[in-house]
Design a protein around this nucleic acid. Structure first.
Lengths: 285, 285
DNA sequence: GTGCTCCTTCCGGTGACCGGAAGCTCGATT
DNA sequence: AATCGAGCTTCCGGTCACCGGAAGGAGCAC
């Protein structure tokens, strides 16, 4: 009874079965899409026989699939369930047409991301094969302070979150990454003022990103949208309006009251999807 | 000891913890994205207190998220893990640029699907807001025999699978749906011969879909791609080459040897009719 | 042949899990 | 206001499902 516990939220005894199962799923990640049974056991800290049993059950259900090479991968069934996550599906579904337009107009990288804790999670990404290489991938994570989408999400996050991030370490990804709290604080203020974040070379020296906030029903910022272009010869001013317009269009599609108001005399540059639905028609003014 | 079991694959005793956990995940589905605790317990056949404990653990890990309304939804963390499924991520990643092009060219619905058992699972979908409404959704399932993508996947599936499906019931979705085994058999032969499936009004009376197979490294058909257009006034012949070209492009990106070969005079089920069409047919327009 | 890694199966002891029951917080209904 | 019902949370003792060491097999490299 005096044995120090390792999991189980402070109670004594080993981790619960549920925790072990989730631990098995955690063993998979970017760069670890296919694992051997032993690999899973090692990563999850389980005895081989235990892992064997649990993995067998997961595979029987379809959460894992066993390839011809004997290694396990995440199964289609788990993907299906995951696809039901509202922060992915609902958002994605409505955002797609706008992302399409933006992609089509820029022929570069278009990204859609949400915040989870102190990180950005990329929910969707459209990348032209010839565009600048970006490090993000769908389902991938990045720190908030170093990315365009991250700065937007942070700028509109609850102040508790902001302070936590500002208090914590701000590791640099490139020499240009903001690493000082007061500089970040100023950047966030600018983002709130301008409604966009422009990050030059903070993730990759040769890439520049322009990001804008996407708002939900209650006008809270629920996501962020960005375009990544080559840093060299980039003309942010040409991109900013398009990004802003797309973000606003998605916000409107999500039911944001603020986005419903017409920006006086501003014609949405990307008419394709935006013009499709006469959103403001019902309630004149 | 004489109590009849319900789960656990035939052994006596109740379902295992893992099965219960997976049962909880199964409670979610299209049309059931948000559930109360009681709802989950009911759907999963668990006592409330048991469900409470397990759901709590799942939520603590991030597999489920609890909304402000107290209801549970699939969490971002689970979505992340699911996104690692190779049949989704790897495929999607390479297919996207081609789907983009196809979408851009047609401004209709573009779909990418894989087979799981006797069903189609939609992995990606690009839909124009003004396009024909389709019933499919990302992560959704449909029967193999009634859809364009399904017929393609079935036509190139192991013969065991084909026979199973042909032997089973073929429920109609519309009056036009193929419901007789021998008619389906002929349709599948045609798909193999032509390298495309054209389904008019089998899912929705007003929609027509054109589907083509996507092949992987070992030339096995791993996915199917389709375009759905309004049935009225549709001109499949205008779409078929584009669909075929896109499917071939994705196959090549996936490393299919057959798709790598130049179409010059090569006669294979995949290329047969496509031989006359240069790969970039839609670009020429 | 020898040594390695990885996988699979078996089985007895035990402590994690189960779930009935009681109490709580909401709204809706009378 | 009182009553009802649905849903949620916590508690706790008995028991049986889970754990994991150990043994054995398959494949590969040296």
């Amino acid at each position: 009874m005096s044995r120090q516990d390792e999991g189980r939220g402070g109670a004594d005894g080993g981790p619960t079965v549920t925790e072990r199962v989730l631990g098995i799923l955690s063993a998979f990640g970017p760069g670890a899409e296919a694992l051997t049974l032993s690999g899973i056991a090692r990563a999850a800290g389980l005895p081989l026989s235990t892992a064997h049993r649990l993995v067998g059950e997961l595979a029987a259900w379809g959460a894992l699939e066993r390839g011809e090479d004997g290694r396990y991968r995440i199964g289609l069934r788990l993907w299906e369930v995951g696809a039901l996550a509202p922060r992915s599906l609902g958002l994605r579904e409505r955002a797609m047409p706008y992302l399409e337009d933006l992609y089509e107009a820029t022929r570069q990288n278009v990204q859609l991301a949400v915040r989870d804790g102190h990180e950005v999670v990329y929910v969707e990404r459209l990348a032209h094969p010839e565009a600048v290489r970006v490090f993000s991938r769908v389902g991938g994570r990045m720190p908030l302070h170093a990315t365009g989408v991250g700065q937007v999400l942070l700028a509109f996050a609850p102040s508790v979150v902001q302070e936590e991030v500002l208090a914590g370490p701000l590791p640099p990804l490139t020499p240009k990454t903001i690493t000082e709290a007061h500089a970040l604080r100023r950047a966030l203020a600018a983002v709130r003022r301008e409604g966009v974040a422009v990050c030059d070379g903070m993730v990759d020296p040769v890439a520049l990103s322009v990001a804008a906030p996407v708002r939900g029903e209650d006008d809270r910022v629920v996501a962020s949208l960005s375009v990544v272009v080559p840093s060299a010869g980039a003309e942010p001013r040409a991109i900013v309006p398009a990004v802003r317009a797309a973000a606003r269009g998605i916000s409107r599609a999500l039911g944001s009251p603020a986005a419903r108001r017409r920006p006086l005399g501003v014609v949405t540059p990307l008419t394709g999807a935006a013009a499709g639905e006469p959103a403001g028609a019902e309630r004149g003014a």
